[in-house]
Amino acid sequence: MNAAIRRIEPLPLDRASSLSVRTLTHLRDLIIAGRILPMTWLRMADIAGGLGTSITPVRSALLALEREGLVEIAKARGVRVIPMTRADIRDAYLMHEFLCGEMAARAALTIDEPLLQACRALQRRMERALTQRSSETIDGLNWEFHRVINGCAHSPRLARMLRQVTRSVPHAFHRLVPGWSRKAMPHHRALIEALASGSAEAARTTAQLHVRVGCELLLVRLERSGYWKKGTHSPLSSSS
């Protein structure tokens, strides 16, 4: 088993999602977080073995990732990850930052007390999960926390745009990016207070800072993993 396959973690358990969705989300996360280094040729069977699943959902996921520009599929050689530059990542997060800021600003003008209480309850649960070092729990609660806030923006079009952009953000960010959980919690608390005060500008600024810090941590994670190290982008293996 080559080094690239050893970096592929088995699929997490999640009964709320289908196998195909879990496979796609997990593979996308591993690619964006640098767990599978670019320009490494892999066979679908090896990827399926690393994930602990069959080839069928892996093939479907890889075809979707190819359409997203994250992988290249070559019949004779297998699959390899297409390199992302630092500028690629910053550009994706720039759009993410704008959309999150705009939706938080709109939410500050419309959110009601029951939804504020829901945000506070989710935040308390995230804080407890942090003390228990349960990053998978935090990831699930985090997505729900932001879903509540984004829903208060009452903009289906912006929500669709945000869903497209967040494909460039690891779904399991708290699990895959060390240090993020402790930095994110103060941002969440500040965002709740901005929403409670009805300050659109404070909500926008806080949400944008939250995304910007996440981007910088992801870049640090990729640097430390050797993602852009000279020679990293040469094939480690061949399926031939």
Rank of each mutant, 00 (worst) to 15 (best):
residue 2 N to H: 12
residue 103 M to W: 01
residue 19 L to S: 10
residue 187 H to L: 15
residue 70 L to R: 05
residue 57 P to I: 14
residue 180 W to S: 09
residue 118 A to K: 04
residue 126 M to T: 03
residue 214 G to H: 10
residue 103 M to H: 06
residue 120 R to Y: 07
residue 68 E to G: 00
residue 189 R to I: 14
residue 138 I to V: 04
residue 191 L to V: 13
residue 171 H to S: 11
residue 144 E to P: 02
residue 210 H to R: 08
residue 30 L to A: 12
residue 79 V to S: 11
residue 26 H to M: 09
residue 142 N to C: 13
residue 58 V to L: 00
residue 8 I to A: 10
residue 163 R to P: 08
residue 40 T to S: 15
residue 196 A to V: 03
residue 62 L to W: 10
residue 70 L to N: 06
residue 12 P to V: 04
residue 33 A to I: 02
residue 21 V to M: 13
residue 237 S to W: 12
residue 88 D to R: 05
residue 159 A to R: 09
residue 192 I to Y: 14
residue 119 C to K: 03
residue 181 S to K: 04
residue 181 S to R: 00
residue 156 P to Q: 12
residue 12 P to M: 11
residue 110 T to Q: 15
residue 47 I to R: 01
residue 131 T to M: 12
residue 104 A to D: 04
residue 193 E to G: 06
residue 130 L to Y: 09
residue 202 A to D: 10
residue 237 S to G: 06
residue 114 P to K: 14
residue 56 T to V: 15
residue 204 R to I: 06
residue 170 P to M: 04
residue 32 I to E: 06
residue 223 E to L: 00
residue 181 S to D: 13
residue 32 I to D: 04
residue 130 L to G: 09
residue 17 S to G: 02
residue 145 F to K: 00
residue 1 M to S: 15
residue 16 A to T: 13
residue 238 S to Q: 04
residue 129 A to Y: 08
residue 16 A to R: 15
residue 222 L to H: 00
residue 128 R to M: 08
residue 5 I to P: 09
residue 56 T to H: 09
residue 150 N to A: 08
residue 86 R to Q: 02
residue 170 P to E: 03
residue 229 K to G: 06
residue 37 L to S: 08
residue 234 S to H: 02
residue 226 G to K: 09
residue 221 R to W: 03
residue 63 L to K: 07
residue 52 G to Y: 09
residue 177 V to D: 03
residue 175 R to W: 10
residue 155 S to V: 02
residue 226 G to C: 01
residue 60 S to C: 03
residue 50 G to Y: 02
residue 196 A to H: 08
residue 28 R to L: 00
residue 228 W to G: 10
residue 121 A to K: 15
residue 133 R to G: 01
residue 63 L to D: 14
residue 115 L to E: 08
residue 228 W to L: 05
residue 75 K to D: 04
